[in-house]
Every structure is written in C-alpha cells, then in structure tokens.
Design a binder for these strands. Structure first.
Ligand SMILES: NC(=O)c1ccc[n+]([C@@H]2O[C@H](COP(=O)([O-])OP(=O)(O)OC[C@H]3O[C@@H](n4cnc5c(N)ncnc54)[C@H](O)[C@@H]3O)[C@@H](O)[C@H]2O)c1
Ligand SMILES: NC(=O)c1ccc[n+]([C@@H]2O[C@H](COP(=O)([O-])OP(=O)(O)OC[C@H]3O[C@@H](n4cnc5c(N)ncnc54)[C@H](O)[C@@H]3O)[C@@H](O)[C@H]2O)c1
Lengths: 226, 226
DNA sequence: ACGCCCTTGTGAACCGATGCACAAAGTCAC
DNA sequence: GTGACTTTGTGCATCGGTTCACAAGGGCGT
C-alpha cells in the first residue's frame, strides 16, 4: 500500500513517546511563522540529538528533503497521522477532587486531538457542579456516557484505594485506555492499555539524582583534601 | 567500605525509576501487617517480572533470604537509603494556578522523604493567600527562601511561556533539581537536573496505542472476511 | 547545465536493559 | 543432624535503543 516500507509494522515505543514532543515543538514553530526546519534545529528545540530525531522520523516515512530540512506543516501532519490525532479522542475524567478539577481546567490538550467530554465523581455533594463548562455526573451513568460520547480514554484521579474499582468500572463501560494518577498499580484485562503518572515517584527519582550529585561533589572534595 | 560490591558505583537508571514503586508497595504491605514478602509476590503487586525485581534489588545489596524472601521493613529501609529518603527533601512549588494548588494540597509525598516548604507566584493578587497551610510568597523572595529552608527541588507549574524564566530564577537561587509540569523543554546549566511531567504527551501516547489496538482488530476482521 | 554543498536517511557498532535458567544458600521438618 | 524444599542472586543470551559516521540525494549558485 505505502511506497515506503518503514510505514509498515511498528513504530518503536521509545520513538512513540517522543513524537508528541516533536509535534509540540513543530506547532510552536508553525505559530511563529517558521516554514522549514532542519533536524539539528528541531532536535535542540526538544533537547534530543539530531541523529535520534532523524531515526525517529525515519520510522514514519521519508518526509525530509536532503540539503534542506523538513516542511513544518507537513511533518506536523505526518506525526499527527501516526499518533492518530487527525480525529479527536473523547476522554472522561473520573474523580473531581483537587487534581481532577485542575485536569478539567487544563486546556493544553483541547487544542490537538484530545477532547474532554465528561467529568464523573462518586460524591453526591459535587454532582451537578459545573467545572470548565461540564457538569459533574454520577458514576452510575458511566456506561451510557461512554457509549453515547464514544469515550476512548479515562483519566483516573481518585484516591488510590478507589482506583481499582474505578478501573473495573471503566473497563466494564468499554473504555480501552486508562491514564492513572492514583499512586497504585491497577489490574486490567488484556487488551486494555494503562499508563501511570506518579508525582511522588518523579520527585523521589529527582531526589536520588540530587543525592548522587551531592555525593559526587563531596567525594571530589575528599580527593583534594585527603 | 561495604562488604557487597554491588553497593558501589551506579544503580542503573531503569532500576532507579522502579525503586519508588517497590517502596510504595512495601509501605502498603507494612501497613497491612505483612512481615515477609517473596520477589514473586512483590513483583506481581507492582506489575513487573520477579526476575527484574530481583535484579533491581541486587543492585542495592543482598537483603533477601534464600528460601524465604525479604523482610518488608528492612527492604523498605534499604530502598529509602538508596533513594536518599532517610532525610527529608525540601521542595518549593512555583506557580499557584489550578495545578499548583492541587500539588500543594497533595499529601501523597509528605509521608515519605519529601516536604513542601514554600509556595510562590508572580501574581500580586494571590500573594499571601494560604494554601494547604502555607502562604503564597513572591518570586523576589525565592533566593532567600531557598537558602533559609534548604530547598533542593522546585516544582514548576507556571504556563509554558514563563517556564524558562522561572527555571533561570530557580537555578540562580541555587536549587539543583526541577520537576517541570509546563509543556515545554527548558534549558539549564550542567549540574542541574530536570524531569518533565507532561499530561498531553501521556494522553497522546495512549491515543497511539489505542489506535494500534483498534487497527489490529480491524485487520483481524479483514483476514476473516476477505 | 553542471557541479558543489548541505542535510537527510541508514547500516553498523555499541550499550544498557530484559528475560532465562540454574547453582548457591538458607530454612524447616523430622 | 540431615536432607528435601524453596527462593534468592546472577551468569549468559537476547533484545531494543542510541550513537556514529557516511553514502545518497536534492537544491542552488554560477
Ligand atoms: N493533587 C495532586 O497534585 C496529585 C498529584 C498526583 C497524584 N495525585 C493523586 O490523584 C488522586 C486524586 O488526588 P486529589 O488531590 O484530587 O484527591 P481528592 O481527595 O481531592 O479527590 C478525590 C476525588 O475522587 C472522588 N472519588 C473517590 N472515590 C471515587 C470513586 N470510587 N468513584 C468516583 N469518584 C471517586 C472523591 O469524591 C473526590 O472528589 C489521588 O490518588 C492522589 O494521590 C494527586
Ligand atoms: N492544569 C493541569 O491539569 C495541568 C496539567 C498538566 C500540565 N499543566 C501545565 O501546568 C502549568 C500550570 O497550569 P495551570 O492550569 O495551573 O495554569 P494557571 O494559569 O491556572 O496557573 C499558572 C500560575 O502561574 C503563575 N505564574 C505565571 N508566570 C509566572 C512567573 N513567571 N513566575 C511565577 N509564577 C508565575 C500565574 O500567576 C498563575 O497563578 C501550565 O504550563 C500547564 O500547561 C497543567
């Protein structure tokens, strides 16, 4: 079908996680009126090596021009196509606490390919409250909501102890992907995708590297003053 | 110094990113009164293979007992030690919008090794407001605050267009690690550590995998109905 | 019209991470 | 005290990802 063999099976995972970064940088370039960009420029903009960038892009096809670079709009389009962002994905946010409300108010992804279509919570006290233009709805309505609005992705922002039961409800409602913000791992059947965002983990990783850095300084001193 | 050679230089990065997960699972086990755990049990609890778990732990030393398993408390302690969580890390949150307030209210890491000691914002309208027991302070005070309270890690939760200038201020204040929530990459001098948490990226990655899944189903049908 | 110059796309070497499989080591029952 | 049993710790093979370096390819100046 495609003339280029690379289009065929499988973009490597590591590449997929970087494509959204490239896309964001390209969008910023387009907004600033830039028409063409070299792998060197784009790479330094997102903080990767140009070789890595070129290899990543080569997995989508051959969209650069040798001696010139990449057309910003066309490359944006090709990445959007590969990521499946040429049509919108409907997402639901579950758990309207501090984090859930912040996520609902976040308009960083309404721009491209992602649309929040439902907010849900268990607590009767918050039902009906409007956040960012959407009324909070009860968990009992999840199956209907998922069906009617074609929800494909759920963001789980409930406390950890509720995360598994919420995930079960999400799966039962036929939603195929979960982004889990609760600091716990959840079990899902095969064919359901889960990713996790864990703030405490990130900070602890930083703490480790900071410690290594501090220790390196210290031992550097020690070699000077034996 | 240590009798075990593995304690020496360098725990692999991939291992470091998983240690916090192990620690959390161990903490949960300890709370439920469990005293011992096998690599098999702990691994399934966090969703990794037992071989990977054992190899990860082997980088810290040899703290298991063959034929028995690991002592929950002792292993927790050893991981905390490796991550540098036996003393508290002071963190500052910069940008008290929707996300910043949610982060301040989050008590998931106050529990272990991490303590939020300052909230800052540029907007005079929010200065002095108290969030989660801390008053919001002006950016001008960052150097003093960082020095007096020993801030080692900054969480940047400002809009993307401010992120670089905030990062510069953070670095100038002598803070060595940044967790960046703004959807932009920031430049820092050598010797400063940055990690990024990007919601839109995560959702786009999920969208990609969901698309692959949907396509696989479709082509599965196509082979049945040619 | 032609050749120089620039940047892409990629083969190949390298590096780190993962998975496998088992010997080593310690417990526990008797 | 001994042997059977269980689970760890790790050597080794494998895999995927990154880096290097350059030939291929197209634009552009002359
Ligand atoms: N606040 C943060 O910055 C932050 C950061 C990272 C992770 N987290 C995690 O995200 C989750 C939410 O954090 P938060 O600060 O918003 O907590 P929160 O307590 O403010 O809000 C939780 C919300 O979930 C709802 N909920 C509880 N059980 C539910 C269920 N079974 N079904 C539907 N809704 C349910 C509650 O009614 C509440 O509105 C927690 O797991 C937390 O650890 C929070
Ligand atoms: N809301 C979310 O769920 C969410 C999720 C992921 C990422 N983000 C990102 O996090 C950032 C914050 O999001 P938000 O929804 O809280 O935005 P927001 O507009 O509600 O808050 C931003 C805050 O930063 C402050 N600020 C701006 N410039 C500053 C500066 N130079 N120094 C100090 N403070 C400054 C503003 O006064 C404001 O209080 C954004 O970059 C957003 O893209 C938000």
């Amino acid at each position: 079908m495609s003339s280029n063999a690379t289009q065929r099976r499988g973009i490597p995972d590591a590449t997929v996680t970087r494509l959204p970064e490239y896309l964001r940088a390209l969008t910023a370039l387009a907004e600033s009126g830039t028409v063409r960009v070299s792998s060197e420029e784009l790479a330094s903009l997102v903080g990767v090596s140009s070789a890595k960038l070129r290899k990543d892009l080569s997995h989508l096809g051959s969209y650069g021009v040798r001696g010139v670079g990449y057309d910003v709009d066309h490359l944006s389009y090709q990445i959007s196509l590969a990521l499946g962002l040429t049509h919108d994905w409907a997402v639901a946010i579950i758990g309207m606490g501090n984090l859930g409300r912040a996520l609902a108010a976040y308009n960083g992804f309404t721009s491209r390919g992602i649309q929040v279509v439902a907010l849900l919570d268990r607590d009767p006290a918050v039902l009906g409250r409007v956040v960012a233009g959407l009324a909070i709805e009860p968990m009992a309505d999840l199956p209907r909501i998922a069906r009617e609005r074609g929800v494909a992705i759920a963001l789980v922002a409930t406390p950890a102890r509720s995360a598994q039961e919420v995930a079960d409800a999400v799966v039962a409602a036929g939603i195929g992907s979960i982004l889990n913000f609760a600091p716990t791992s959840i079990e899902v059947p095969d064919g359901v995708r889960v990713r996790k965002v864990d703030l405490a983990t990130e900070v602890q990783i930083l703490a480790f590297h900071q410690l290594q850095h501090d220790r390196a300084l210290l031992s550097g001193l020690r070699t000077v003053i034996p």
